[in-house]
Structures are given as C-alpha cells and as structure tokens.
C-alpha cells in the first residue's frame, strides 16, 4: 500500500540538512582559522588564531544562526488537527 507522506516530514528533513551544513561550515571555518593563522601574530593581546578562530568566528556564526533559523525554518503545526494553521506564539 502506497502511503502519503506528511508534508511536515519534508520540512523536518530540510531543517536537519540545514543544521548539518551550518555546523560543517562552522567546523571548517574554525579549523582552518585555528590551524592556518599561526601562533606568533597577536590580536587584542591573544594569539591571532584564538581571536579570529575562537572568538570572532563563533560570534559571527551565532549571529548567523539567529538569521538562518528565523528565516529558513518555517512554523509548522505539531498536531494533526489543522495542519495548515500557523502556530500561535
């Protein structure tokens, strides 16, 4: 018997993919900055790789996260009663 997939499942999968892509980019950026910038140059009195890779980059990604989550994750109903209704706050 062919079953109809709940359209909210597609949203769920897209959100899953979004999260893993986001974290992969963060991971790549932090690793690259940390291992490539070197310990000698200083920024704000700290080794440059610490300031850029571990203070600035995480801060930028946290701000990006707010935008990504609020803009790209749609509101869906969690109950089966009225799937088309938007959840009240």
């Amino acid at each position: 018997m062919k079953q109809t997939e709940d359209p909210r499942i597609k949203v769920s999968r897209r959100v899953f993919l979004l999260a893993w892509v986001f974290f992969s980019l963060y991971l790549a950026a932090v690793l690259a900055a940390s291992y490539l910038l070197g310990i000698r140059p200083r920024l704000w009195g700290l080794p440059q790789w610490v300031t850029i890779g571990n203070i600035l980059l995480p801060a930028v990604f946290v701000i990006l996260l707010i935008i990504v989550v609020e803009k790209l994750i749609p509101d869906v109903s969690l109950t089966d009663d009225k799937p088309e209704r938007r959840e009240p706050e």
Binding site: V15, L65, L78
Partner: peptide, 22 residues
C-alpha cells in the same frame, strides 16, 4: 582546549533541528 570546547556551541541546533520537528 578553547577551540575544542567551542565545538559544542551549536548543540541545541544539532539536537533540535535533526529530530525536533519529527
């Protein structure tokens, strides 16, 4: 270990996004 510990920052995202809606 500042770098190593910083990898946990997005734990809420990585928990709620992959399975939260389902």
């Amino acid at each position: 270990w500042v770098m190593i510990n910083n990898f946990q920052i997005f734990m809420n995202l990585l928990l709620l996004a992959p399975i939260g809606i389902l």
